[in-house]
Simulated assay, not measured.
Amino acid sequence: MRQGGFSLVELVVVMGIAMVLIAIGTLQFNEYSRKNAIESQAKKLQADLLRTKADALLQRRDRAVTFSSSQYSIYSSSVTTVGPVQQVAVKNAISSDIAGQLVFEKSGLVTDPSMANRAICVGPSGNRAAVDSVVITDTQIRIGKWSAGNCEMANITLK
């Protein structure tokens, strides 16, 4: 006659199912964390560029931004030989088709017409984030999704 409780086989089966569910949940959480990090970095970059553009307009003074794969720097003028006002280290590498520096003139527009219609992409190509790039036109700074290939306007869908 059986007393109350569970058999060893029942406990092992339940533990096995629990372990499989925990493993799946951990993988999904890691993917969610990567996507969230890329999206938040792209949105912060857009916000910093919009603030720099607004500062140039409000203070009636040129503002420069330089980019590398591990950081971007914001300057209080178009002179980049002095220390930056703000330097932002990035967790996910950024790539860009901007060569040199991006300068917002005191009117809030991009000074060099060749720098307009450029893109800055966050993370690797083909990631699963909803937004992962910032597109800079002569008058706007918009966010988008980088599909594949090089980080350039033709490969980005604006959101």
Rank of each mutant, 00 (worst) to 15 (best):
S125R: 07
D138Q: 13
P113V: 13
P124K: 15
L109Y: 13
S133G: 12
Y32D: 06
V134R: 02
A54W: 11
A148P: 03
G4V: 09
L27K: 10
R128D: 14
S147G: 06
Y75I: 04
A37F: 04
L57W: 13
Q87F: 00
R51C: 01
G5M: 03
S76R: 01
T157H: 02
L58E: 11
Q28C: 10
P113T: 11
I74A: 03
Y75L: 02
K35E: 14
K145I: 03
A116M: 03
A130P: 11
A93P: 12
A64D: 07
G144F: 00
Q41I: 12
A89Y: 07
T111H: 08
S76Q: 09
V135A: 11
Q28I: 07
P84M: 05
V85H: 13
I143Y: 00
M1H: 07
Q3N: 06
A93N: 09
S40M: 07
N117Y: 12
G126Y: 07
N117C: 10
G5N: 06
L8R: 12
E10F: 02
A129H: 14
V13F: 15
K43C: 05
V90S: 04
D112P: 05
P113C: 02
T139Q: 14
G5F: 14
S96I: 04
W146I: 03
I22F: 14
V88N: 08
P84R: 00
V103P: 05
V20G: 13
L57Y: 15
D132K: 09
K43R: 15
A148W: 12
A47D: 12
T157S: 15
Y72E: 05
S125M: 10
S77D: 15
F67V: 02
P84W: 04
S40R: 02
G4A: 07
S7E: 03
V12N: 05
